[in-house]
Design a protein around this nucleic acid. Sequence first.
DNA 1: CACTTGACCTGTCCGC
DNA 2: TGCGGACAGGTCAAGT
Length: 288
Amino acid sequence: MPELPEVETVRRGLLGLVIDKTVTAESHDTEKGFPNTPHDVQTFLVGATIRDVRRRAKVLMIDLSSGYSLVIHLKMTGQLVYVGETRFGAGHPSDSLVNALPDASTRVTLTFSDGTHLYFNDQRKFGWMRLLPTIEIPNIDFMQKVGPEPLSDEFTSKEFIQRIQRRKNTSIKAALLDQSVLAGVGNIYADESLWGAKIHPARRVYTLSKTELVLLYTELRAVMNLAIEKGGSSNHTYINAEGKKGSYMDFARAFRREGQPCPRCEATIEKLRVAGRGTHICPVCQVL
DNA sequence: CACTTGACCTGTCCGC
DNA sequence: TGCGGACAGGTCAAGT
C-alpha cells in the first residue's frame, strides 16, 4: 500500500479536485469495504458537499458538510481516483489507467453533481472506507493507537529515539514498521532510510548507538520528504488521485534494486527477509 | 508483557 | 501452456 508519502500525494491531488463538490449518488459492492447502512449513506453522504481532505498516518479523511467524514485506509492495493467529465483522449499516457474505470476492483463509486466520479478501487480488498461523524474520528481504535507524524515540526530526534527504544528487543526494521511507534513508515521507506543510515535492518534496537539513531531519524525524514516531492513510489498498483504514477522509485537506492550496484559503494544489493517482509540491503554498507 | 507468525484477498511472476 | 508456490508498498488476531 501506499505509505505516508503516497497517501499524502493522494490527499494533495484530491484537494485540488473534489473540494466543494457535492455527492449526488453512491454505490458500492456488498461484500466488503463499506459497511455503513443505506440509511446513513442517504442521510450523511448523499447531498453532502466535500469541505476538506485530511491525512493522519496512512489514513485519509474526506470531511463532508453533513458533519460526517469518509475515513479511508488504502492498505496494500487501494486507490482513490478522480475521473473528470472530460476524459483523456486515446493515446494519452493516463488513458488506460483512468478511462477504464470503474473496473473489477472498484469497491465504491461516488458521483458528484457535475457528473464527475471518485472511485475507490482495491484489488486485494484489504482496504476500507467508512462513514463516521467527523468528531468521532480521534476515538477510533486506529487513531488511539497510532504514533506521531514523523514529518511534523514538533517531532524531534529525541522523541524518535525514545519511542523507537520502546521496542528494544526487536529488529530496527520491525520497530520502524510498528505504527504505534511512529506513523506512516512502510516497507519501502524503512529499507530506504536504513540504507541511508547504513544500518542493517535486522540489528536489534538495543544495539544501536544514539548517533546511529539520530542519523536514521534524519534519513527517514529526508527520504519521506523526497518521496512526497516526487509524488510517491509506484509499482503496478499505486496511482494518485489523477491516475498518475509517482517517480520516487527512480530515486530508490536499495528498495527493489537487488542485483544492482549500491549507489554508494558499488557492492551488489541483496534481498533478504526481515520482520516477515522482503528487505533490501547493501551487504557492505549495512552489516550486522 | 514483548515479540513473531499467520490470516485476510487477488493477481502476477517464476520455475518445473 | 499449465500448474504450484512464493510473493506483493498493511494491519490485526492469535500464538509462543
